Simulated scan of single mutants.
Amino acid sequence: MSLPATVAQRLGVTLMRGCLGACVTMALLSAPAAQAQSAEVFGVHYEPTLRVEGRELTLNGTGVAYRALAKLYTVGLYLPTKAHQTSEVLGQNGPMQLRFVLLRSMRVDELGKLITRGIETNCSRPEFFRLIPAIRTMGEQFSRMKRLQAQDVVTVAYMPERGTVFLVNDDPVGAAIRDPQFFPAILKVWLGDQPATTDLKNALLDHKAQPVLSALE
């Protein structure tokens, strides 16, 4: 069931009205993804560990998102403890990060629409509506950002004492979004029952490449 127009406007989802924007969003959600055999993905280096708020995070997996044959972005998932199931990821405490490195320029609203659509797809209706204030805040923060360029690093960081923070090239976009259910909902965009792509989900959880896709890299 689609959101009422008035709710969509509050969320800033009205950006989806543009035909081009809608097509780009659907392409991002349905594009196949290549799994990464190592942390080196198309020249993008992901450190094996990160130190965040006194905790060491481990690179759980990396992958590449495509639209047709065009590479869109790489993503790395950092967790306190390695995990191979979505339930294991969602059950962890402590800081976590999703780190994206863009391989092409992207409008900021594309990222916002990808996250919003993915949250809606992977949450129940009551869960989604409870997240509306957090999604609205995300949209307000994204509206102040410039166009993202190739090689820009977009980080979605979760810090238990603060909440979810969006960063571009390690600079915070805005204040932390405190809703503790917001970051798990974002994780489900890529790791949920209906992820952006199954291959990318498997890459982030297993860090293994399919032989054919690996050869194409």
Rank of each mutant, 00 (worst) to 15 (best):
L15K: 06
V168H: 10
W190A: 03
D193F: 08
R10Y: 10
V101I: 04
V44L: 05
L167P: 03
E120D: 06
T198V: 04
T58V: 08
A134C: 08
G76W: 02
R144Y: 06
L187W: 02
P180I: 09
Q210A: 13
T58M: 06
L148D: 00
L191W: 01
Q141R: 05
M159L: 05
T14N: 04
A175G: 09
L187F: 02
T164Y: 02
L205R: 00
K208C: 15
F142W: 07
D206R: 08
G61K: 03
L28H: 02
T49M: 05
N169A: 11
A134I: 08
K201C: 04
P184R: 03
L79I: 10
T14I: 11
F128N: 09
L57I: 11
D170Y: 14
Q37P: 02
V13Y: 06
V165L: 03
W190E: 00
A215I: 04
T198M: 03
M106R: 01
A185V: 05
M26R: 12
D206M: 13
S124N: 12
C23D: 06
E47Q: 06
Q181C: 11
R67W: 15
D199F: 01
I186F: 02
G91D: 08
W190L: 05
K188C: 08
M138I: 10
Q35P: 03
T164Q: 05
S2L: 09
E127V: 09
P95D: 14
G94P: 01
P32H: 13
R55K: 10
T58P: 05
F42V: 13
V89W: 02
V75G: 00
K82N: 14
G63D: 01
I119C: 12
V212T: 13
G192N: 06
G54P: 11
Q92L: 09
S30Q: 14
Q149P: 00
T74Q: 08
L50W: 15
T155P: 01
T197K: 04
V154S: 06
N60R: 04
F182Y: 12
Y158D: 00
T62E: 14
C23F: 11
V24T: 10
A203C: 10
R178P: 07
L98D: 04
R147N: 13
L20N: 07
P160Y: 03
T121Q: 06
